[in-house]
């Protein structure tokens, strides 16, 4: 016998994401899902971004996704903001932050006191792109050291995101990266993707990133 159905396999994941979305709306939280390869500078970016938002009296919190360890959340501790570490498994669990993990992490946060929530996803250009977490915006950080080809090799990630932060721009003089080819590859995948070159080390471009966050938050 045959049973004809239509069932989205990610229905449960999406339902939980919608519950997260509802909580963000109820509490006026602007949620940003930050994704990238491992080592592209997501945590350093947050270390530099959050004080600039605090200067503007915006309270931030971070859900820190990692397969294992609390190293990243320890780096964020000096900022004095709520950080919830969401590990998957000690010896290698999921390759992405799931909506259920965000849901669990939100229970540890005082949502009334948060203006901007950053979800630092697990370093991976494939899997995190697949899953909606209930966020307002998806941002991909692509470091210059990764080369021009990454947008074409990982199309879903660059297709899904609203903004691409080109990080480690201070290294440009030392690399042979063809930046016009990189921009062209980004455009080939997502013509609507906004691109901001930054250097967390020198601070270049961070004001544009902050302006983008503030503008998107008002939308």
């Amino acid at each position: 016998m045959e049973i004809n159905v239509v069932r989205d396999v990610l229905e449960e994941s999406n339902a939980r994401a919608q519950e997260n979305r509802k909580l963000f709306d109820q509490h006026g939280i602007f949620a940003v899902n930050i994704m990238s390869s491992p080592g592209s500078g997501k945590t350093t970016l947050l270390q530099k971004t959050i004080p600039l938002l605090q200067e503007r009296r915006l309270s931030c919190a971070v859900i820190e996704g990692d397969i294992t360890s609390t190293l990243d959340s320890e780096r964020l501790k000096p900022l004095g903001i709520p950080v919830v570490q969401a590990n998957t498994e000690p010896f290698g669990g999921d390759c992405h932050v799931g909506s259920h993990m965000v849901q669990g992490a939100l229970k540890y946060l005082d949502l009334e006191k948060i203006s901007i929530l950053f979800i630092e996803n697990i370093g991976n250009l494939v899997c995190p792109a697949e899953f909606y977490l209930g966020e307002d915006r998806k941002v991909v950080v692509l470091s210059l050291t990764e080369g021009e080809d990454k947008p074409v090799k990982y199309p879903l990630m660059f297709r899904e995101c609203h903004l691409c932060l080109l990080s480690k721009m201070d290294l440009a003089p030392h690399l042979e990266v063809d930046q016009s080819l990189l921009n062209e590859n980004l455009r080939k995948i997502n013509g609507q993707l906004e691109i901001i070159p930054i250097s967390s080390k020198t601070g270049d471009g961070l004001s544009l990133w902050i302006d983008w966050l503030l503008k998107q938050r008002k939308k």
Binding site: E2, I3, V5, V6, R7, D8, V9, L10
Partner: peptide, 12 residues
């Protein structure tokens, strides 16, 4: 884009 189940077969 999207992953869906559209049919299930079972033994009578």
């Amino acid at each position: 884009r999207g992953i869906s189940i559209y049919r299930i077969e079972a033994k009578d």
